[in-house]
Design a protein around this nucleic acid. Sequence first.
DNA 1: GCCATCATGAAATATAGA
DNA 2: TCTATATTTCATGATGGC
Length: 605
Amino acid sequence: MLHAKHSAGDDDDVNWNTDDEIDNFQSSPRNVVHMDETVAKFIEMGFSIEMIGRAVEETGGENPEPLMILETLFKISTSPEASSSKSKVIDELIGMGFSEELVIKAIQEHGEENLKEITNALLSYAAEKMHETEKMHETENEDINNNYFSDDNDDINIFSGLSSSDEENELNSFHGDGRLQDLIKMGYPRKEASIALERCGKIASLAEVVDFIFAAQMARQLDEFWAASDEQERRINEPPPRRRRLNTDIASDDELIRLPNPMIGFGVPKEPGLITDRPVPIPNIALGPPYFYYENVAMTPKGVWATMSSHLYDIKPEFVDSLYFCAAARKRGYIHNLPIKNRFEIQPTPHYTIQEEFPLTKKWWPAWDKRTKLNCVLTCIASAQLTNKIRKRLEKHERDPAVQKDIVDQCKKWNLVWVGKNKAAPLEPYEMERLLGFPNNHTRGISRKDRYKSLGNSFQVDTVAYHLSVLKPLYPKGINVLSLFTGIGGGEVALHRLQIPMKLVVSVEISEVNRNIFRSFWEQTNQRGDLIEFRDVEELDDHKIEGLMDQYGGFDLVIGGSPCNNLAGANRVSRTGLEGDQSSLFYDYCRILEAVRSKASRMRR
DNA sequence: GCCATCATGAAATATAGA
DNA sequence: TCTATATTTCATGATGGC
């Protein structure tokens, strides 16, 4: 195990120290707060002392964790017994932060007896409001994010998302007159920040206000979680998910999974077809937290996605082509249990056409090459010889339509762009980084060949960030990430660009070259959390997973895309399917995910 | 029929170091 | 100049969606 721990002596270590002090409802042993403080927070949230006492008693244990108590409180507050008094329910809902107007509206719409419907309606109202606020917040953050890329100097690495000093300044300025603005800048929705300030009072510390917001958000999250709690309890005693099957076993599943056209998943920005409810709901057994996010190539041999889905709780994959996010195609499938409401893009968004993304190519782009999008960025590029051949042919037969067509075919096959007169060349590594949403020169310092290989195997950051964006309001204080097959850290770059703090990243990556790239990213972006590196997924057995979860309070997100070598269409040598040497590591993803979920269940109890 | 596809391995060539 | 290592180049189809 390779352990890169953040140095404790850094001068700018203010935030995490503060957060450690105020850590609240996470079920981490090290994060358990004093019971008096917990009770005070529950009272602030609108629960009566009587109800809190009952919840503590029903939760059981010598020192029940706040998260468990809160869960019990929600069960009690929405039980038929508790709903006997309409005014009491109204008071409690208002006490939870919902406006009186909305509560009354929800009751009128759904009837006073139907508490669950009322709660769902209120959550929807709140979600809509949060979404609006999030949009405002995105606009406000544009200036920060616009500095992320440098078009002028490719030799300068710019990681200007939320630097440590920026974050510190924001926190330090909290006690000034613009507290609401400060909270909004930190990423909290305006409504929640406003309520929190009102409820906590003028003399409240930053810790208390942030704590209050987090508690309210956790409460909302728990409400959805609670709906499936019975099922989850049952899950604890269930056997692990189905183990691997032979390809011959899954023929009947083939028909269940088809690639969508257009390949927009549950929807993408700027295209019609956005949906906010899954057509096939996530089975209760698979509801998070912990959340997981699995990725692989969309076009696999038949039956592979059906098999992968069956091993990941029968969640249907979301197929998305990243050409809806950038100027290059990238057809991928994602199986995840993330919410899909209120997704948002990271800023700045990439350009959507080749010519906009690489303006210098406009001068040389021939009219007969109609491409506006590139094909998938692969792990290998065309040779310099091909560029020479194309130039020579064009010098002789520039006006020959047959030659033009042949050359366009070559350009499509090898993803060439026009960089000079009659000169079609492959993308430079830094150009691929830009297409894929990475910082300029993210992969600098390794051989050119390795850069292409690593980039060809990576996530498209904007696409993944769009999916992960729903975590931002759920975890304003940051998340613990278990990153399998980390590669060059596409998932972590997405979280960083979303400004979701990473308190912990446990990374598994077999390539030393990739580990070095990711570690450089971690250091250059001044990450405050801990980075723990493993080389091989096989090193991560149940004992190690449980130890890490005990130490850090569990994982909030398990993310990774297992090797596609044996699935990818470009492989002419060993496209042997999911049981191939590399691609069968998918089963390790399942094993580790199940170990995390199982341990998380035990920790909740 | 057309088209795109997170690739692999061997041979050829270039580079670095003694 | 020789040798070891690194990099570039080339040849290698099948699959599945439309």
